[in-house]
């Protein structure tokens, strides 16, 4: 059964991907600004013939439909296009950036979930105490603070003033040779961007988790557990937490896509060499093939992650299988 659901989800994902490809392509081409003109301008001017020559080289002189047909055909072969600006293959540009982005977003996601669930659990279980109030004020502040501002404050405090962590980049200029030291080096670089990205989402999860814990604490089955003589700690662990975490899990599986999008800001502020940063640069330079490639790749990542969380949800909540008609 799960196998069939998996295939359906995969098929749906493919359809979404095709939709994204078509939409991105049209949108980008509708945006004002001629890449050939900009390229020519930055290359130190040039006359009409030079621009025309560039357009021809880039394939921009062909009708839009033909351009898309070429694009789609290349996609099928796994070819994301060629960046004239960088004189490089788009697929390889993205491929070399993906690990950095995944490292950053997954770490941030983990931080968000752990902090969110723990804060929310404590707040909900010890509701209306000083601890609860304190935690909720902290999350409210984190939630209300713009991401990029928080990132810059982090750099000012922990990097410039305290000197605990490097302010930007993913590796030191002189990359250490030993694998362990190299990992530690990357880890030190990761702390600030991962936290500034993660804390924002942690705030949302904490508030949702708190509400959910309070809700579940009032459920009849928790009263049943008390009537059975189950100790408080075990009630929280066995009966409340598992039920309370479900809504957080649902929200998180939707938001993980946003998280990948939110990485653009963080990667820019911290000069993190991921695809967010790549996209930012590509947009400034009107580097269409790169923009399209990044869009498509992020869409693919989001779809894959959503399928994964969907399947995971089925394991966490046994009731799901009936709604799928087993």
């Amino acid at each position: 059964m799960t196998y069939r659901i998996f295939l359906t989800r995969l098929g749906n994902g493919l359809l979404v991907l095709i939709g994204v490809a078509i939409m991105n392509f049209t949108l980008v081409h509708m945006a004002p600004g001629d890449p050939a003109m900009i390229f020519a301008g930055e290359a130190g001017g040039g006359d009409e013939t030079y621009v025309e020559q560039l357009r021809e080289e880039m394939g921009l002189d062909k009708p839009l439909v033909t351009q898309f047909a070429i694009y789609a055909g290349d996609l099928l072969r796994g070819d994301l296009g060629y960046s004239f600006r960088n004189q490089r293959d788009v697929a390889s540009m993205i491929a070399e950036r993906i690990p950095a982005t995944l490292l950053l977003t997954m770490t941030a996601f983990g931080i968000a979930l752990i902090i969110g669930v723990v804060f929310g659990m404590l707040g909900g279980w010890f509701r209306n105490t000083l601890l609860d109030r304190g935690l909720m004020i902290v999350t409210l502040v984190l939630y209300a603070t713009p991401l990029f501002w928080l990132a810059m404050m982090f750099v000012l405090l922990f990097s410039v003033r305290l000197g605990w962590f490097p302010p930007f980049g993913m590796q030191s200029v002189l990359v250490p040779d030993a694998p362990l030291e190299r990992m530690l080096d990357i880890g030190r670089h990761l702390v600030l961007p991962a936290f500034s990205l993660g804390l924002f989402y942690a705030a949302t999860y904490a508030r949702l988790m708190r509400a959910s814990v309070i809700n579940v604490s009032n459920a009849d089955f928790v009263k049943t557990a008390r009537a059975k003589g189950v100790p408080g700690g075990r009630i929280l662990r066995v009966h409340v937490l598992r039920n309370a975490i479900l809504p957080v899990f649902s929200l998180a599986s939707v938001q993980i896509g946003q998280l990948i999008g939110g990485a653009v800001l963080t990667e820019t502020v911290f000069a993190w060499p991921g695809i967010g940063r790549l996209m930012f640069d590509a947009i400034l330079q009107r580097d269409y093939p790169v923009i399209l490639g990044v869009f498509l790749t992020t869409a693919l990542l989001v779809i894959l992650v959503n399928i994964a969380t969907d399947l995971l949800y089925r394991i966490v909540d046994p009731r799901i299988e009936t709604s799928a008609g087993s």
């Binding site: 009537a227 003589g229 598992r242």
Partner: peptide, 21 residues
Amino acid sequence: LRGREVAMIFQEPLSALNPLM
């Protein structure tokens, strides 16, 4: 003592059991 010497059952059997256990 709860569960060992005195036990209780409730009105709503649909919500009185933990759905995930």
